[in-house]
């Protein structure tokens, strides 16, 4: 509560947005008025009391599909972010602590991976691999972990040169102690902000892939796929495709508002000391 009070209004809006999306995703099964794949009306019916957001290109209730779509989109994005984070952080901290050839090999490999644009990388790999959910999550996580690695290493390298890490080394502490007890607690706030950013990015990225037909496969609902399903309606003036598109934007904006506040907070911590 204390923390929410200290938040600027923008961060509070972000928090509210994230909460609404999470709530509707978690309770989709209870809240959704119709089933995920249930055809309930005509194609592209406008919004009415019966169908709050109208119906989609096959006559399914858009609101229900939005809620189930929230489930898929948020769950897959979160899974990919958690995975990419764990991998990226661990490897980057290891590189920073070990230095020498471990660092060289990991960093150069990372440079190589980062030299390929993410979307192109994903498209090429997904073209060759079978279309399965776990592969999608893995590919997203792997690509994203390169960005986490870069930040994690930069943060960790700054911490590793601190005298308290040297003191732990001189004491004879093992690598895992140094990574998890000395570095991690001090890297947490920049990394927390980065996690938010990566999650927002994962939502956008997953949606883009689905939109291009390479992410989540129909008939399962997910926001990017729903844009693809309903895009042809635009020519007839049917805005159904804009609803999932808007939801993606709203979720990403909400997360970014919180991240922005987190980043400002950490930077004012750093900049707060001057010779006064």
């Amino acid at each position: 509560m204390q923390m929410i009070k200290a938040m600027p209004w923008s961060a509070r809006i972000g928090l509210l947005g994230v909460f609404i999306f999470l709530f509707s995703a978690v309770f989709a099964d209870v809240l959704a008025p119709y089933g995920e794949r249930e055809i309930v009306g005509d194609v592209w019916e406008p919004s009415s009391a019966k169908y709050l957001m109208g119906t989609d290109n096959l006559g399914r209730d858009l609101l229900s599909r939005m809620m189930y779509g929230a489930q898929t989109t948020i769950f897959i994005s979160a899974a990919a972010s958690v995975l990419s984070f764990s991998l990226g952080i661990f490897l980057s901290f290891l590189a920073a602590v070990m230095r020498g050839w471990t660092d060289q090999v990991l960093s150069r490999l990372n440079d190589l991976m980062m030299a390929i644009p993410t979307l192109i990388f994903a498209l090429v790999v997904l073209a060759a691999l079978p279309q399965e959910l776990w592969i999608l999550v893995l590919v997203m996580a792997l690509i994203d972990s390169t960005r986490v690695f870069r930040l994690g290493r930069a943060v960790a390298v700054d911490i590793v040169v601190m005298d308290y890490v040297e003191a732990a080394r001189l004491r004879g502490e093992g690598r895992m102690w140094i990574i998890f007890r000395e570095i991690l607690p001090n890297a947490l706030s920049p990394l927390l902000a980065e996690f938010g950013l990566r999650f927002a990015f994962a939502v956008l990225f997953l949606s883009s892939l689905s939109f291009l037909g390479l992410g989540i496969q129909p008939p399962e609902a997910d926001w990017g796929g729903m844009v693809k399903d309903n895009k042809d309606g635009i020519i007839f003036g049917v805005p159904a495709a804009l609803i999932p598109g808007g939801a993606i934007a709203a979720l990403a904006i909400s997360v970014n508002l919180i991240v922005d506040w987190l980043l400002n907070r950490t930077s004012s911590l750093k900049g707060g000391r001057g010779d006064v």
């Binding site: 601190m162 005298d163 308290y164 001189l170 001090n186």
Partner: peptide, 11 residues
């Protein structure tokens, strides 16, 4: 060992 900058010598 004891360091010059006690600030950064303690986590």
């Amino acid at each position: 060992m004891i360091y010059q900058m006690a600030d950064v010598a303690m986590n």
